[in-house]
Design a protein around this nucleic acid. Structure first.
Length: 680
RNA sequence: GGUGAGGUAGCUCAGUUGGUUAGAGCAUCGGAUUCAUAACCCGAAGGUCAGGAGUUCAAAUCUCCUUCUCACUACCA
């Protein structure tokens, strides 16, 4: 299929510039794309590799506000950290751009304009809050007010973090702008929507043409198309001042939705790289467009972006989106906020010049078909017993024998035995086998084949025993060592996409310039009489137990530290009057049972002194019903009753919540306090 | 609860459209060997393919049910 294409455009998901990169990013997206691109380049194919930082979206100004700095400082900081980490790990982007660049603003803006002029959007006018002092519309996150449901005075416009309910900013009582503190006013605002509902048949047809996509990818697309009412219109503009301004009259103070502008970043980065012929890569039917992403991005790359490209009209659409699943770490989900991660910039310090060891592990154990687990112990085992013992050892045996018996000069092959010819035949097969796996995006399989080539070499040496024969039949040994050296040379070629640093090192030790993929089919890449480097170094070394243990300890530590990391800021001042409106009493749980068909809810019967009442509470994740009978609790008793899952809840239990989101009962510490005692 | 993806050897994972005796690496055990980083090479053992029912000459693979894990989503007063 790829034979009909003249060139390939490969993109990697634009990482969001509000935090550093970890091994999950590498394993899920950047490493596979890099392997793919390096392989294509080695084959001499026309390929571009595009990436950059995603620097827009509401999360960045919010983070800036929290850290007391500007959005620009945030994105500058992380753009550098991420770009450096990619470079250090050999992720060989042809361009690493960023969406804050003028060229991107211009490209995204034009893209929107073209779609707009064609009537590609529907307009919808809604009432949104506007801050008259700051002179801008407020996105939901910038408004706080009293939650209409639980009375929490600090609910955000999109969600009340106290009761968890999803809100509209207009639902809030006493809304306040977090920008100026002033009371926002309701103003009509217009936003532009991509009518995905109307585009559904087109998207369906597009997906139907790509039955060869990975199961996890098609599965998720299907669930969007088939669920409920199918696709829904989605707003492509936001009332925000951080991003690409909407290039339409009457759109002052609006920017493009971050998910509209981010994938266009692929286009603007290509423009930046190839100002003269970028269109060849985006508009020519003979270009194959491939997006490497993690599973969290599937919907945007398989549905929304293709829809945008189709509606714009001039562009080709993605031919494949080989999304990976997630990588877990030591049995737990990787989490930036919980600091449960192996950070790339830290790995580079702790394990200097050992990028290929990590590249190897993350590819050999990549989450290609399902979520996988990374453990440090496994990492140590696999590098020790595979990279060191199989790959490195084979190369070392060849080089040491050559130096010892042949003064470092590659000996000539004279007569091939039958088994020699079989080995050479095997050797010639490897590049195609490996290539076939890479073309199918099966990188772990491809890497396993690379290792099999090293195994072939080890076996050949074990079978022919040149160190014994050297005493009796030097001529035969010369042939054997010639073949062994050819194997090592071809290994240097085929390992390059996966282990670029190792490949370079190996070519240096062989004292030849790097060869390309097509050469790997030859069995005489290194000529008799060639002098290899006198300086022989191990390609890989084992990890010390202490090094590995230190990493495990570091993670354990961050688990503990994490609890104190994020303590929520104190809320605005309140009055005693407001507080004394709350009627909080001590109580005792008499009965507890799970609410059917929910994960978190327990139905409780509580004696609060005044009466015995039913309370529904979202604590099932932390407490088992049978364990909390007789538990003393604090209950807000004058909260308006509310029906939850058909059960009327008559109050609310007070819970302490720590940084990890765990809940704990709050109660009076003297056991003989009677139910119904006031808490004030 | 809804949707999607999964459950295969002690561990980490392959198994393409149903087709001989279900594979690999690591770990384990035995053998051989010393050029090599206690490395390599040969061999053995190890599986009721989550459980059950069905379709078929034939099921890890297709259908249904049950169960568990993960992601998104709903539920949180």
């Amino acid at each position: 299929m790829s034979a009909t294409y003249k060139r390939t455009l490969v993109t990697s998901a634009l990482p969001y510039a509000n935090g550093p990169l970890h091994i999950g990013h590498l394993a899920g997206c950047y490493l596979p794309s890099d392997i793919y691109v390096r392989y294509k380049r080695s084959k001499g194919e026309d390929v571009l590799f595009i990436c950059g930082s995603d620097e827009h979206g509401a999360a960045i100004p919010i983070r800036a506000k929290i850290e007391g700095t500007t959005p620009k400082e945030i994105v500058d900081k992380y753009h550098k950290i991420m770009g450096d980490a990619f470079k250090e790990f050999g992720i060989s982007f042809d361009v690493y751009s960023r969406t804050s660049k003028p060229i991107h603003h211009e490209t995204a803006s034009d893209f929107f304009k073209v779609m707009y002029d064609k009537g590609g959007f529907t307009e919808e006018v809604t009432e949104q809050y506007y801050d008259e002092e700051a002179k801008q519309f407020l996105s939901d996150r910038f408004i706080i007010g009293t939650c209409p449901k639980c009375g929490n005075p600090n609910a955000y416009g999109d969600q009340c973090e106290k009761c968890g309910s999803t809100l509209n900013a207009t639902d809030l009582i006493n809304p306040k702008s977090t920008l100026s503190g002033s009371k926002p006013v309701l103003k009509l605002t217009k936003n532009w929507f991509l009518p995905l509902d109307k585009l559904q048949p087109k998207i369906q047809a597009y997906l139907d043409q790509h039955k060869d996509w990975k199961a996890n990818v098609t599965g998720q697309c299907k669930s969007w198309l088939d669920s409920g009412d199918g696709l829904q219109p989605r707003a492509m503009t936001r009332d925000l001042d951080w991003g690409v301004p909407v290039p339409v009259e009457g759109a002052e103070g609006k920017v493009l939705y971050v998910w509209f502008d981010a994938p266009i970043g692929y286009i603007s980065a290509t423009k930046e790289l190839r100002p003269n012929d970028w269109e060849l890569y985006w508009k020519d039917k003979e270009t194959r467009l491939i997006h490497f992403i993690g599973k969290d991005n599937i919907v945007f790359h398989c549905i929304i972006f293709p829809a945008m490209l189709m509606e714009h009209g001039e562009f080709i659409v993605p031919d494949n989106v080989p999304a990976n699943e997630f990588m877990n770490l030591e049995g737990n989900k990787i989490s930036t906020s919980k600091n449960w991660a192996v950070w790339l910039h830290e790995y580079l310090i702790d394990f200097k010049d050992r990028q290929d060891d990590l590249r190897y592990m993350l590819c050999a154990n990549a989450p290609e078909t399902k979520d996988n687990d990374f453990t440090w112990k496994d990492f140590q085992t696999r590098t020790d017993s595979e990279l060191v013992s199989v790959f490195g050892n084979f190369v070392n045996r060849v080089l040491v024998l050559t130096n010892k018996n042949h003064d470092g000069i590659v000996p000539e092959a004279s007569e091939y035995t039958k088994s020699d010819l079989l080995i050479l035949e095997e050797l010639r097969k490897f590049p195609d086998v490996i290539a076939d796996s890479i073309e199918k995006f099966r990188f772990r399989e491809a890497l396993a084949e690379v290792m099999n080539l090293a195994r072939l070499g080890n076996k050949y040496l074990a079978d022919t025993e040149p160190w014994k024969l050297i005493k009796t039949d030097e001529k035969r040994v010369r042939t054997i060592m010639n073949i062994a050296t050819q194997i090592a040379t071809n290994l240097a070629i085929v390992c390059e996409p996966f282990l670029p640093f190792t490949s370079e090192k190996l070519f240096k030790m062989l004292n030849i310039s790097p060869l390309r993929w097509a050469h790997a089919k030859n069995t005489n890449n290194i000529h008799a009489g060639h002098k290899i480097s006198g300086k022989i170094d191990y390609l890989f070394t084992k990890f010390e137990d202490a090094q590995i243990q230190a990493q495990i300890d570091k993670l354990e530590q961050s688990k503990k530290n994490n609890v104190t990391i994020t303590i929520p800021e104190s809320k605005p001042e309140t009055s005693f009057d407001d507080f004394s409106k709350m009627d909080i009493r001590t109580g005792t749980i008499l009965e507890a049972e799970r609410v059917p068909k929910t994960d978190k809810l327990l139905k409780l019967k509580i004696d609060v002194g005044i009466d015995t009442r039913t309370v529904v509470s979202g604590i099932a994740e932390w407490y088992k019903p049978e364990d909390i009978i007789g538990q003393r609790v604090s209950v807000l008793v004058n909260l308006a009753p509310r029906k939850i899952k058909g059960i009327e809840s008559q109050g609310m239990i007070l819970m302490a919540s720590n940084a990890a989101g765990e809940l704990s009962f709050v109660n009076s510490t003297k056991p003989d306090f009677n139910n119904g005692s006031e808490i004030k």
